[in-house]
Simulated assay, not measured.
Amino acid sequence: MKKRKIPMRRDLLSGEMFPKKTLVRIVRQADQTVAIDPTGKAQGRGAYVALDPAAVKQAQGKHVIEKAFDVKVDPSFYDELFAYVDHQKARQELFGDKA
């Protein structure tokens, strides 16, 4: 059986490469808003974030997402992103690679 290639993406917060399935995509949409893209297929400029809630909190202080997308990010987005990453990390720990 032929071995499949695993797509790798760079984590915006740490700069490390991870398999695409283990990351969360965030996207800057055409109306200059930033949103979480759980499907990974939304139109717009995308970036990937690892499932590390501590890194999300640190990114809020350093304004990493604002610098990457060159837009003003509402502080409530960081709260939403933290909750989403925390939830996805818990799912991954419970169910393994299926989540």
Rank of each mutant, 00 (worst) to 15 (best):
R10W: 00
D11G: 00
V56L: 01
V27E: 10
I6R: 06
V34Y: 03
Y78C: 05
P75M: 06
K67S: 15
V56C: 05
H87S: 15
A50H: 06
A68N: 12
K21G: 12
P53R: 02
P38R: 13
K67I: 01
A59K: 13
D11L: 02
K3M: 10
Q32P: 03
V73K: 00
L13M: 05
A42F: 00
E16S: 13
V27I: 09
D79C: 04
F69Q: 11
D37M: 02
G15H: 12
Q60L: 03
M1Y: 11
P53A: 07
L23N: 07
V64W: 03
L81E: 08
I36L: 11
G15S: 11
A99D: 06
G44V: 04
D11F: 02
R9V: 11
A99V: 03
K89A: 12
I6V: 13
V64F: 03
A42P: 07
A50I: 02
L94S: 11
K67P: 14
E16L: 13
A50Q: 12
I36A: 07
P19N: 09
V27T: 14
K2C: 01
R10A: 05
Q32C: 04
G15M: 04
V49K: 02
V34W: 01
Y84K: 11
D97A: 12
V71G: 08
A35R: 07
L12I: 10
F95I: 07
I26H: 05
Q29K: 15
F82D: 15
R25Y: 12
A42T: 05
D11C: 12
K21Q: 13
E16M: 13
I65R: 00
H63E: 10
P7D: 13
Q60N: 11
L12N: 09
D97T: 11
V64P: 00
D86Q: 13
V27M: 05
G46V: 02
F82A: 14
G46A: 01
Q92H: 12
Y78S: 06
A83Q: 15
Q29P: 08
V85W: 03
F18C: 08
T33K: 15
D37C: 02
G46Y: 01
H87F: 12
K3S: 10
T22E: 15
L12H: 07
S14T: 15
K72W: 05
Q32Y: 04
D86E: 14
